[in-house]
Design a protein around this nucleic acid. Structure first.
Lengths: 267, 267
DNA sequence: TCCCTGCTTTTTGTCCGAGGATAGCCTGAC
DNA sequence: GTCAGGCTATCCTCGGACAAAAAGCAGGGA
């Protein structure tokens, strides 16, 4: 959570002060923390942040670093700065919700069930069609990539980190095979969803019946250049994933731990 | 093109020095110019930009402003900075192609025909399904918004700026009625596409047969809560738009004027 | 010969302090 | 009551300095 590089921690509250993802720069981690606080509801649309001098001091960083962090958030449509008015959180409708980072921040803050559902809905719309396109356009290399991912998925017991990675790889290879650049971009967003939902399912110990079968069916349809069959298989895959996620959520709460104060995490 | 605020222009080459969109801040216009140069192919993926001192001096701005511009581009996945290595253009696959800004920059640089096609393909995938969802979920208010847009479209002769705005409004209202946040975000991207294609068609003087009829059909299907019909109507609408655009492009070139050097536009 | 360690150097990252530009707000005149 | 003008809070831009990261090189040891 806290990715600040500072080694000393006078408060003693801040566990895991030097995490493994400490390669992020200061402005990056500020943007991250602030963003998580925003999507977590700690700052609401319409709210105005304290002015630069005050806030950067509270975070114990320079105004420069803070401003660069705000630029990042502004680039994703989450805040808007103007002289005299200050920096204000924009309405959610203007956030770039399919930006990979924004999506990741949502999952980190603990996505609401409705948000999760809307993402699955997006997948239900996009991925089947993408599979159909992939069936028409895939090359041997695409097929090979999908096959490798498939094998790596089945090699492990479907619960390890590598099998998750293989899952992501599979979906990415499929999107890539569709030969549509804007569509490919959605891949990382979809990946974020898969990653999180897998984690939830794992935590609850609820492994779906047979996700591998679905994946294999998609692969074979694509290999056979059978668009409609690929579409149907992918639709079934997504729907099963959604059902499994719902089931897991009923067992455990959807929202993870409440977000800490930005001011507190950072000092 | 050049949104810099500077009033004097020693070269005399830079027309329209103070455009109407001059509200952008310096870092914003630098990001804009750089981004257009990148999507225009002036800098290619893998290329390394000159270091901050050199480049910011060449652009005649402070390092601060330049760095903030780079942060914006980095947030959209277009560049990546590291100490010692420098700032390098990332591969296109990692660009956030559905970000409204990135899309707008593409259109400004003159999109390639294949890119345009892939966007229409995305619309063909997303919008019909969105229309179907909208048919199920729309409220009276949604309907009202769509109707207003429809009337404003038909009021003007379908070639003025206000009718274009109404067109955008219609599509946005429809997406909004689908009640799916991530889907709504695509609205601005779709809007950028519509805006640009309309412009092209207009320039060539090729107005499609009857776009209004399609729009009205979509509206009525949504009003009747008839999902399948809404989907079909929207599909037809998008396909017609694509056909009309292709026709227009055959008459005139797709790519607009070549992009100028960033260093030159800015000084 | 090969690898490992430590130094050098280039580039970005962070900090600070100052002044300029913008825009919301209030005051005052008409 | 309305409009013009000044006031001021806030972000914006600037310049300069030093810190940190990391790629590449050189030297030493096995």
């Amino acid at each position: 959570m806290n990715a600040r590089r500072r080694t000393v921690d006078p408060t003693g509250l801040d566990l895991a002060p030097v995490g493994p993802n400490d390669r992020r720069r200061l402005h990056g981690s500020i943007a991250h923390d602030l963003a998580v606080a925003i999507v977590g509801g700690q700052y609401k649309p319409g709210d105005v942040l304290p002015n630069e001098d005050v806030f950067s001091q509270k975070l114990a960083v320079s105004r420069t670093a803070y401003r660069e962090a705000v630029r990042i958030l502004a680039a994703k449509g989450m805040v808007e700065s103007r002289p005299k008015t200050g920096t204000r959180i924009t309405e959610r409708a203007r956030w770039n919700l399919i930006d990979p980072d924004v999506l990741a921040w949502h999952f980190e803050a603990g996505p609401s069930v409705t948000f999760l559902d809307s993402l699955f809905e997006l997948r239900r719309i996009v991925e089947p069609q993408a599979a159909a396109l992939a069936a028409e356009r895939r090359t041997e290399a695409d097929l090979q990539a999908m096959l490798v991912a498939l094998e790596r998925m089945s090699a492990d017991n479907l619960s390890t980190a590598t099998s998750l990675a293989a899952d992501l790889e599979f979906h990415h290879a499929l999107l890539a095979a569709a030969r549509n650049e804007p569509l490919t971009v959605l891949s990382s967003g979809i990946g974020a969803t898969i990653r999180w939902t897998t984690m939830v399912k794992q935590r609850v110990g609820a492994m779906p019946s047979d996700p591998l079968g679905d994946h294999r069916e998609v692969y074979e349809a694509v290999a056979a250049r059978n668009g409609p069959r690929a579409r149907a298989a992918m639709l079934s895959l997504v729907e099963q994933a959604q059902a499994a996620t719902h089931q897991a959520i009923r067992k455990g709460p959807a929202r993870t731990d409440p977000v800490k104060n930005v001011e507190e995490t950072r000092r």
